[in-house]
Write a protein that binds this DNA or RNA. Structure first.
Lengths: 198, 198
DNA sequence: GTTTTCATATTGCCAGTGTAAATATTGTGG
DNA sequence: CCACAATATTTACACTGGCAATATGAAAAC
């Protein structure tokens, strides 16, 4: 263990991201300040400025890491699913499972108040997350006659649905979340969609 | 015109809400500070404290007004729509039209960072907005056999879909919004849903 | 009509925030 | 060994929202 406290941290960049993620889990977005993150990483509050330009830059990097984990959540159940609809369902469940497990990070990721969506790294990470949705959406027999770009529209629909469900449930707007009440999951609602190769 | 500047404002409560809404339109969420709102209303930055307890209280009141306008947007095209599916489509379009016309207010309304969802007035206003969705969802022939509470699940699906589409498009995540590109509207994507009495 | 009362608005202050510039410390290539 | 670049710290600053004490004016009580 290099617990030696040297003037130079060594790998402060990733240490700050990890510190931010930890604070996000414990205290949510309210606790995510520049000074708090820096203190958790054991440095002064101006140290992050060398690696990320500003607080927003640091939060953007945290958001990018969030998108990678988000994609991982969606891919988690994919190996067990064989048919197209099952793969679709697994990805959707992963989408929501992530927002329930890491609500603060989820909000951060999709807020242009915290994240700079012009950032290249963030865009790449977000694209990786979106790619999972496009993967599970291909091969499904949507109503091609309706429009020439039916595939694209289907992706928009799935993304909208998953994101809306995740957002609303993470905000507790579907009811008292902590209760043992049987709130329908996204899979309960998903079959209302129309796809044909089931 | 009572342009006389008296020590007592008279109707500061609603003046502050209007000032906040105006700032929200012009500068977005970043410009929405306690001092900025108070200055626009022509009072000191501690005046709002008498009517709303804190900045959060004021923002919550602004959010409540947002929900009322949101409901009005959804009801806008309802009178011209006769059939069930047409009414559903009109409400969904209103949902998205609001988020496009007032993106900052839309974000404020659905963020528990700014709004206190325990507030009675906000809850009532939000319920009024949700009521429109339940109205247009009733009478549609969902797959009742799938579950006993098919109606509730259908509402969750519609709400999730509309909210997700509105959120993602308002955040510009569906593509470069300013371009003249033909980005599908929510009505383009909506027919992918399955309802039966068309 | 005067006085009391009370809601409302102001001033001055406070701790806390992110940012910036100047300084100190360390590793690295000449 | 030395100059240089990278990295972290210190100090200071403008700004934020919240609070306490004070000032104002309108409406109620006498």
């Amino acid at each position: 263990m290099s617990k030696e406290k040297s003037y130079h941290h060594g790998d402060l960049k990733s240490a700050l991201i990890e510190a931010g993620l930890a604070i996000l889990e414990r205290d949510g977005l309210k606790g995510l300040g520049l000074r708090a993150i820096a203190a958790k990483a054991g440095v002064s509050h101006t140290a992050p400025r060398n690696h990320f330009g500003s607080l927003r830059g640091l939060l953007t990097a945290i958001g990018a890491e969030g998108y990678r984990r988000h994609a991982a959540f969606m891919r988690e159940g994919l190996s067990d699913a064989s048919t197209g609809p099952d793969r679709l369902q697994a990805a959707m469940e992963g989408y929501v499972r992530f927002s329930a497990a890491h609500p603060a990070l989820f909000k951060l990721m999709f807020s242009d108040y915290y994240c700079d969506f012009e950032d290249a790294e963030l865009q790449e990470a977000a694209a990786g997350s979106y790619a999972v949705l496009t993967e599970v959406a291909t091969g499904l027999d949507w109503d091609k006659a309706a429009a020439p770009d039916a595939q694209h529209r289907a992706e928009m629909m799935l993304w909208s649905f998953a994101h809306g469900f995740a957002t609303l449930s993470a905000s507790g707007q579907f009811g008292p979340g902590a209760e043992g009440a049987n709130i329908p999951t996204i899979s309960d609602v998903l079959p209302t969609f129309r796809y044909r190769d089931r």
